[in-house]
């Protein structure tokens, strides 16, 4: 399962307000000024609601949330654990 398209749509609409050109899967949200730290919380709240998961405080690190690829990887990992638990 890949979440890239959904994530991309959310980031483009909410933080780039429709401007798609400068967003690649590996674009660093913070270096490119796309998302600031408060924006990270908006992104977290979006993935919690959409994928019905809880992001733990200690998971709130740049390594998990600084690009589409990284969020996608994080989500895959998180949701596979959830599937196993179920």
């Amino acid at each position: 399962m890949d979440y890239l398209d959904e994530l991309k749509e959310f980031v483009i609409n909410n933080f780039m307000f429709g401007q798609k050109d400068s967003l690649e899967n590996d674009t660093d949200f913070f270096n490119k000024g796309i998302i600031d730290s408060t924006g990270t919380l908006e992104l977290v709240s979006f993935i919690e609601e959409t994928y019905n998961i809880s992001v733990l405080d200690n998971e709130l690190i740049k390594e998990n949330f600084s690009s589409l690829t990284k969020v996608n990887e994080y989500l895959k990992k998180k949701l596979s654990v959830k599937t196993q638990i179920i």
Partner: peptide, 15 residues
């Protein structure tokens, strides 16, 4: 106000 905001704000001010 909470651990979550703390993590995100620290990275804001770390810039």
């Amino acid at each position: 106000k909470d651990a979550r905001s703390r993590a995100s704000m620290s990275s804001f001010f770390k810039e």
